[in-house]
Every structure is written in C-alpha cells, then in structure tokens.
Design a protein around this nucleic acid. Structure first.
Lengths: 162, 162
DNA sequence: ATAAGTGCAAAACATTTGCACTTTG
DNA sequence: CAAAGTGCAAATGTTTTGCACTTAT
C-alpha cells in the first residue's frame, strides 16, 4: 500500500532524514519529495503534493517537518517578498533570488553578482551585509518581458513556481 | 476638544488629503502624522500613535486609510522582509532599504548604489529589474556591529523603528 | 441630503500550539 | 515500552470585509 511505496521509493531520502536525527515517516518523505523538485515551494504547495499520495496528512505536520528540516540544515526558509514563506532544499553556496513580479517565477543569482553591493552599502550607510541571508530581487522574467509589454493590471499569468 | 485640535494642527496635512480626493478626517490626519516621522512604520505602530490622541480609532480605519494613501501615491507599502507590512511617506526618487537583522533599524539606499545590479542580473538570468520596486537588503547596522560581536541568539535589542 | 468615512464584529488567511493518539526504534 | 511523530481542533496575529451608523461637504 501507499505507505510502503513511499518508504521504498525514498531510501536515499530516508537516509537524509536519519542523518538529521529525524525518523523517516511517510509524511516526511513526501515533504522531502515535494522539496526535491529543486524549486521554491510554499507549505501549501507541499501539502497539496503530499495529499495526492497521503490524503490524511495535516498542515501542522508539514509545518513541523519543515521546521525540523530547516533546523537540520536540509531545507531553507526563503523570503521571496510575498506574504507567505517559501522553502527550498538548502544549497552549500550562498545565492540570492530574482522574483518575477508578473508570474512569480524565481531564479537563483550567484553571490558574485552582488559582489559590488557590500562596498556600496557600507559606503553609503555603514551597514554590513550579513553573510548568510539571501536577498530577494523583484524583477520581470524574460518570458513576461516579451509576453506582456505593459499590461501590469489585468492578465497575471502566474506560471507554476519553477 | 481633540477633534478640533487635530484638525487645526494639520492644515497642510488636510490639504494633502484633499488633493488626493480624501476627506480630511481626524483619523486620517493622525495616520498621516504617524507616517510623517519619515520612518518606516507598521499599521499597528500607526494605530498605537493614533490611539494616544483618538482612543476610539479602529484598525480597519487605519488599514483603509493606508490603502487610500497608497492608492493616492502619498504613502508607500514597503516589504522589509518581515511578516508585517511597513509604510512610509512616498518619496519622489526611488530608493531601497537596508534592514538591520539585529535591531530592525532601516536606512535608505540610493538607487545609484545598486547601479551595477541590473546588468549583473540581466547577464546571469535575463531578468530585468522593475523600475519602481524597492529591494530590501538584510544587513547589520553600525550600532549592532559594535554592540554585539557575535550573540545572534539571545539579547535582541530591537531599538524603535527609525 | 448624499456620498464618504467610521466602528464593530466576524471572516480570511497562514502559521502555531496543546493534547490525546499512533507509530517508530 | 519510551520517545518521537501525527492529527485534530483551537488559538494566534495580521489584514480584510459586511453592514449599520456617523460625519463631511
């Protein structure tokens, strides 16, 4: 049945969880799987994904699992400028995000691209950039640039989160 | 009584409201006044300020007034990376924000300081920066740099919003 | 008078928490 | 079995909304 399937499919995932001191339950494997796409997802995205295979899973469980994964350094909580929290698999190297204001698409930006920022900020304000926080940069993605010359008001496409 | 006082003190403010097509009520003048400090405040900050002079003012009124002021271009809704919304008086020139992760202090950053950013973002991702969105940059303010060498965990000072 | 603005109570949200029950090791 | 994890229901905190009442013009 579903329980066993989920557990078998996620041998590597189970190991990841164990290493983090978490018991590999079906629910947690599904959360990890939803995160595994490499994209940026909300708790609700994860819940929806998990419910497909495990309908009884509860939001609390998703939130608690995410907390545990973040604490274990497996997941990362990311502010993308909206009112909800986003989560992604933790990467080893720091990166930032460009977020399309039209469709919500998100891309990574190497830390190096912001190299010039720290000195400029320090010079103007004396503030020092934190070495581990990510910066969310509102922007327009290439697809939306060509698709919608200037209709900011109406037809928000909202492609899925990439 | 309070009503008249508030109204007299805010002749210029009343004019601002009228120009925006808003009737200058005591409540709105107080919202404007709370915003007037030039800082970044939450709806609740404004509510607290307004209640000092007008105890019966309601959160809904603050929110509705802020909506109106934002729509009129008088106020600006600003994402400072927290879970609540911040508001400030709209400036004519675009600027960004550095936000101290230790105490919450906020400073402005001239758009020019980010001049190098747009080309770097375009080169790496193809995304184009939006001309009117602000970027919130998490950082550590000078005061917190010297005050707290490395106690990220405990003594969060949380000075008032500047 | 008429439209705009207000207060209140209730709803909408995303997220958190207390607690009893179930699962894992 | 004990500890960890789960579901459920209720609470949280911020923001929004419906509606009847008040105020500004």
């Amino acid at each position: 049945m579903q329980l066993r399937d989920a557990r078998n499919a996620g041998d590597a995932a189970a190991a990841i969880l164990r290493r983090a001191g978490c018991r590999p339950t079906a629910q947690r494997l599904l959360v990890l799987q939803a995160l595994g796409g490499g994209g940026h997802v909300t708790a609700d995205d994860i819940l929806v994904h998990a419910r497909e295979r495990y309908p009884s899973i509860n939001p609390s469980t998703v939130y608690r699992t995410l907390d545990a994964l973040v604490a274990a350094g497996i997941a990362r909580r990311t502010d993308l400028g909206s009112d909800r929290l986003y989560f992604e698999v933790a990467r080893t190297h720091r990166h930032h995000h460009v977020v399309c204001q039209e469709c919500g698409a998100v891309e990574h930006l190497h830390d190096a691209a912001l190299a010039a920022l720290a000195p400029a900020v320090a010079a103007e304000t004396g503030y020092r950039l934190t070495p581990d926080q990510e910066i969310a940069i509102p922007a327009i993605c290439p697809a939306c640039q060509s698709a919608a010359p200037a209709d900011a008001e109406k037809g928000h496409h909202h492609h899925a989160h990439p």
